[in-house]
């Protein structure tokens, strides 16, 4: 199970990173979101994978690690704020520059800047 979990995290991260290397803004934002999923999964697993427990004190002795959960919870919300900011920035860039390239360059001057 641990192996499967690790592979899944790695695949999600790789897919996200691949998208972040693209040249247009929207795939980059999608990649960023995917990468933050992978990061959250990674962080979450730092307390070990506990099935059938919970972090509610109810007299049971089988608890999951609450600390990574608290960290990831805020990370999810902050990740949302970051995605939102990035995508709005992308929209703004398109509105101001007239294209959606990550470098804000126009299609015609792409060649000369290479």
């Amino acid at each position: 199970m641990e192996m499967l979990y690790a592979i899944t995290t790695g695949v999600l991260a790789a897919s996200g990173l691949y998208l972040m290397l693209r040249g247009r803004t929207f795939p980059v934002v999608v990649g960023l979101t995917l990468l933050s999923y992978a990061t959250n999964l990674f962080l979450f697993s730092m307390g070990g994978l506990t099935a059938g427990g919970s972090a509610i004190i109810d007299g049971k002795s089988h608890y999951s690690d609450p600390l990574p959960q608290a960290l990831v919870l805020t990370a999810i919300v902050i990740g949302f704020a970051m995605t939102a900011f990035a995508v709005i920035l992308a929209m703004r860039a398109r509105g101001d520059m007239g294209n959606d390239h990550v470098d804000g360059r126009k299609a015609e001057d792409k060649e000369e800047r290479r």
């Binding site: 690790a6 995290t9 790695g10 695949v11 991260a13 697993s45």
Partner: peptide, 10 residues
């Protein structure tokens, strides 16, 4: 990089 992350996680 995905391999590195997976390895690290594992």
């Amino acid at each position: 990089l995905g391999g590195v992350i997976a390895g690290l996680n594992y």
